[in-house]
């Protein structure tokens, strides 16, 4: 037992489980975008709360790490708080809200606005890992499609969107192709974040606990959002800027401020927004 107060093993999981997960992660890195099956363990939080990401983090984390956990881009979201305190307790790690200080960032639904660096690891919580699942519910079938690179149905689906709506009507969990081979779900991040995955210096690991799959994008790996020549991939834009920090380049959450429908827009990334607000205050004081 290495210095935690819980009565459970270091980082909660037993060593054999961690070894199994570690081997799975290495294979995931060697086959970018391919979903490696693994023997999911029941975790002390429910499926859907990030059990896949938590198992990935538990198998990689050590006492020298500095952990940041975000949900919806924010460090103070209830479940992010809960996961952070789980690892502070079971792994005795330092935690931070600052993206640049973290060695591991566990996330649900966002990629931080500040660019990640070499050596950092971004762990995504994934609800449904299979990009073809809505088109074909059977695992036996989708596994074959990946094996044969038979991705025609995905292109047909996207093209049907264009026929119906004049555009690809997917705004989050937008499918990507990794290293020109596997089609991958980036987890429900807004498509605004998709370009950040491409050639990112950080290692990106994806954990889906209930679905028992782990996959990865190594650093400096091509990640292309699917599109067509006549309908190129585009990200969301806002006419507004952040009401707190004035950012025009970040993903904005909409907050309803009155029952008359008044709204304000603020950064979803609380760390990015906080830094910008601090810089503004400093500037104003000088």
């Amino acid at each position: 037992m290495s210095g935690t107060e819980t009565g459970y093993n270091y980082a909660y999981l037993d060593e054999q489980t961690k070894r199994m997960l570690r081997r799975v992660i290495l294979k995931a890195v060697a086959i970018p975008g391919y979903q490696v099956p693994f023997g999911n363990r029941e975790m002390p939080m429910p499926h859907g709360w990030g059990t896949g990401g938590i198992q990935v983090t538990a198998s990689i984390i050590g006492p020298d790490d500095v952990l940041k956990v975000i949900d919806q881009g924010a460090d103070d979201t209830t479940n992010a708080v809960s996961i952070r305190s789980f690892f502070a307790k079971t792994a005795g790690v330092a935690t931070t809200t600052r993206t640049e200080e973290a060695t591991i960032v566990q996330t649900r639904h966002r990629i931080p606005e500040k660019p990640l660096k070499e050596g950092q690891i971004l762990v995504y919580q994934v609800p449904i890992p299979e990009p073809l699942r809505w088109l074909e519910p059977r695992e036996t079938e989708t596994r074959k499609m990946h094996a044969l690179s038979e991705y025609g149905i995905m292109h047909v689906r996207l093209y049907e969107d264009i026929a119906t709506h004049g555009r690809i009507a997917t705004s989050y969990d937008y499918p990507v192709q990794v290293n020109e081979r596997y089609i991958m779900r980036p987890s429900p991040i807004p498509k605004f974040d998709n370009p950040k995955m491409d050639m990112n210096p950080a290692l990106q690991l994806f954990g889906a606990g209930r679905e028992k799959r782990i996959y990865a994008v190594p650093p400096y790996t091509k990640v292309k959002s699917l599109d067509f020549d006549d309908h190129p991939f585009e990200v969301q834009r806002w006419d507004e800027s952040c009401a707190l920090c004035g950012a025009t380049d970040s993903f904005l959450d909409e907050i309803v401020t009155s029952d008359r429908g008044d709204r304000m827009f603020v950064c979803s990334d609380s760390d990015y927004c906080g830094d910008r607000q601090a810089a503004r205050r400093k500037e104003a004081a000088e």
Binding site: S2, A11, E15, L26, V29, G119, A216, P218, P219
Partner: peptide, 20 residues
Amino acid sequence: KDPQLDSQRVFRQVLQAMAR
């Protein structure tokens, strides 16, 4: 010396080797 923490640390080094 410390099977838990040493293997964690070595794993991260191997992960780094495979990822880069």
